[in-house]
Every structure is written in structure tokens, then in C-alpha cells.
Design a protein around this nucleic acid. Sequence first.
DNA 1: GCAAAAGTGTTGTCCTTACACCCATGC
DNA 2: GCATGGGTGTAAGGACAACACTTTTGC
Lengths: 249, 249
Amino acid sequence: MKKEPAVLAELKSHEGLFIKDVHKLVDSYPRVPITVDCVIFGFDENELKVLLIRSDIQIYKGKWSLLGDFAEDNEELDDAAYRILKERTGMSDVYLDQVRTFSNPKRHPGGRVITVAYCSLLNIQHHELKILDNELHWHSYNSIANMAFDHKEIIEACHAWLQKRIQEHPLGFNLLPDKFSLRELQNLYEAILGVSLDRRNFRKKFASMDLLIDTGEMEEDVPHRPGKLYKFNFDKYEKNKRKWVGIDF
Amino acid sequence: MKKEPAVLAELKSHEGLFIKDVHKLVDSYPRVPITVDCVIFGFDENELKVLLIRSDIQIYKGKWSLLGDFAEDNEELDDAAYRILKERTGMSDVYLDQVRTFSNPKRHPGGRVITVAYCSLLNIQHHELKILDNELHWHSYNSIANMAFDHKEIIEACHAWLQKRIQEHPLGFNLLPDKFSLRELQNLYEAILGVSLDRRNFRKKFASMDLLIDTGEMEEDVPHRPGKLYKFNFDKYEKNKRKWVGIDF
DNA sequence: GCAAAAGTGTTGTCCTTACACCCATGC
DNA sequence: GCATGGGTGTAAGGACAACACTTTTGC
């Protein structure tokens, strides 16, 4: 077996070989700077968008970067992600989920930094960007290039996560206005999944789920026949969430 | 907007406001000890098992703990997880996947420690445990209690991950011997998903996938009619992996 | 011959897919 | 009236769920 480090042996009492001073134990661990990076998706003009800033860092001059920051002492990482979102965009109450941790020792040019990637979804219309430092703005997902660090890889991981997730959970509504037409919803799915879907089947699918509430309102200012506007029935969804079993690969 | 910390302002050059010394930047970040915890699943006697040790730590005396260790300097976390597995069980070439990062500042009594949970699947028969320090042994998943730290929560997260994952990917075969009967396979699914499945439909499902290779061998030493033994056709699976699109929630 | 599990088919239901026409509105 | 997208139905095929009996082996 592996030889115990001297520090560990010291910490153990003689009777039970239990470590008594857990603070000393933790102090003996190597420490690593931790950051959180937020991949913030939006949807506008029938395109999936990502919020990026110019990198602060000279060697990445001209390159784009995710919104990230280090985690403060004793800050839970979920809270750090919400904090970054708030600081950079002024928004709270945004959908946010942890996706994956990236730990390649060479991923940051300044030394080892581990980063935890979070994915957020927000509605571009509802949330005007007020803080435009570092050229903060929305980029079309399909034209993303020239990223600092390993941020391209992180964005791709979040995109894959989103593609999978949106098919199994009602996330997409976070990217749309409260009231939306079926066409907008379909455009959203098509943009994220990168496929085209049959309009009739798409509508039938959502009709059969019976999770859309007809607001009685119609689209306005469209240059064609206006469609009905719907809301998603989150309450009903939460109540009827079913546990699904099936083998499929 | 958020006021820039003094250290940041210092690091920026006057012309472009770009940070020149990235090492100084990274040195200014708070540092956190990082550990990796492995939830190692096995399958034996028709039960899902988890590999646990007794906690080292006095205040958790008598409690069970996951196999974990801190990440070494400049060690990628995936590598750390493989290392722990190797050190503790002597095994390599084991299925392993990152599940989630846990960062509650109070999760470790010795101070803040962030841990990244990994899930491994291995075949209990093929891998005899040779290193039994800290009472290392297999516990039935259903009788797990009395865990140190937040390890109960971590195990549950990995179990949920496994339940979902096994339905969509051919992971389960990692828990079985190379050659297995359909009954063993079904028992595995039933144990992990906590449901009972119709035997005929289960067999039909796998027959229609056409991913099992009939080895021509039969079970031996069973007190009833022996079943055929199969292998999983990983090559064929990899070649035909299809991208699935469908909305279902 | 008895216990225990292997092995096998059919039917009904539901879901998915593919596909085409008329309707309402803005211009 | 023309362009644009809204809104709808049907038929065929495929997947899944429910269900029972015969066969093989060990003991």
C-alpha cells in the first residue's frame, strides 16, 4: 500500500489512529485558486447567443472570454456564479446550473487554476445589459471563435449540456419572453439542436403535453397573420413530473 | 459597477488596461484545498454495492467515508481520481466519470474544502480487494447510513447520475463479468433502477438492439437450467452511436 | 417429479413521422 | 392579390406494455 505521509502519521492519535486535529489536516493539503465561469445563453433573432467580454489579459489581447471570477473565501460556488451574473449583468433570478469542472493544470497561463463551469439561460429582451465593461455583449453561438483560455471547450461542453437538457426539461422557456408564440418556441429548439423540425408535429407535441397556457393574446407587429401567445405552466409541470424508466442507447 | 480591487488595477498597464503579469494575478486569488471523492459502484448477489472505508477522522469515529484524497499540485482531477482508485484498490482501466463539485463551505469540519465527485463502476468478481486498510469493503447501497462529511449526499448524487446514465449508455456492462447471462443483466438494471421489469420485454429489447454477442457458452454451476452467456459488442455500439432528437418532459 | 429459471409470440395501444391544404393578416 | 406564416388531420409504421406456456437442468 501507499506509504502514509509523515504529516498524516503525526496527526493520528496512538490509540485509534484517528486524526484529531482536522484543521491541521486541511492545512496540510495543497491549495488551488478556484474560479467560476458562466456560460450565459440568450436567444434573439432566431439565434442562440452567448454573453462574452474581452479578456483582461495581455497575452489574450483581442480574444473573448467568459464571465468569470475567483470564488471568495467561504463562498459556495453556486453563490459565486450568481454573484458574477449579478455583478456583470445586473440580473438575478436567472436559471443557473453547474455543468462541469475543468482542471487541466495548463489551462491558465498564470499557473494552476481550477474552474467550475456554470450554464445560465436568460431572456435577452427582459434584461437589458447596463454594464458594458470589456465590450460585454451577445455573440452568436455559431460564430464563436478566438476564445481565451480553454473557454471554447467550456462553451462547447455547456452547449452539449444544453442540447441534452432542453430535450428532457422545460429549460427553453427561460430564454423566451413570458409570453411566446409556438413559432418562437420552435425556432428556439431548432437553433439549439441544430435541426429542423416539422411544424405540425412540433405543435401537436406541445398540445398533447398540455403544459402551455393560452393567454388569449396574440402577437402584434408581425408582418403576417399573428399567432397566439402562450405561457408555460410551470406549476402543472412540477406537479406531474414523472419518473421515466426505459433503456435506450 | 463593481469597484476593481486595487491589486487588479495595479496589474493593468496604462495603455491598454491589460493585465501583464498573469502569475501575479493568479497569486492574488484565494486558494482552496481540493479533494476528489470516488463513489465506486459494484454489483454482487443481485445488489448494488458501494466501496467505503472507515473515516480517519476522530469526530467521525465509526462513520463511513468515500475513498478520497486531495489533488496533488498540478494534477488533473481525472488523474487524481484514477490514482485514488489505483492506490486503494489496485485497479486501473476502470470506468470513471466526473459527476459534480461540492463546495458548501461547511462541508468539512477542518475548514473549507471543495470536493469533486467521481463515479466509478467496476466488476467485483474481476477485482479482488487486496488493500483492506480502514476496513475497506463493499456495502450494499440500500443499507448505507452513518456517513462522514456530506458523503451521503455525494453518494445519492452519484446514484441518481448512474440511474439516468445507465438508461442511455451501456455502462452497466462494466459492473458485470465479461460474459453474463440476460438474467444477470436484468437483475443489474432492476437493482440500479429500483423497479422490476418484464423479462420477455427486457430480452426482446436487447435482442432488437443487436448489441449482444452470443459467446456460445452457457452458465455453469447454477441450480437450474443454464442460460446463454453474452458479451457486449462495444465496437458495434461505438460505430452506430446515433444522435437522438426528441422532446420529452 | 419437482423446483427454478430459460426461452419464446401476439395483440393492442400509443407515439412518431410524413405529408398538404386553407386561413388570417400586413402590405 | 400576394407573401408570410398560422393553424389543422390523417394514415402508416414502430416501439412498448401486458400477458402464459413449454423447455431444460439440478436435485
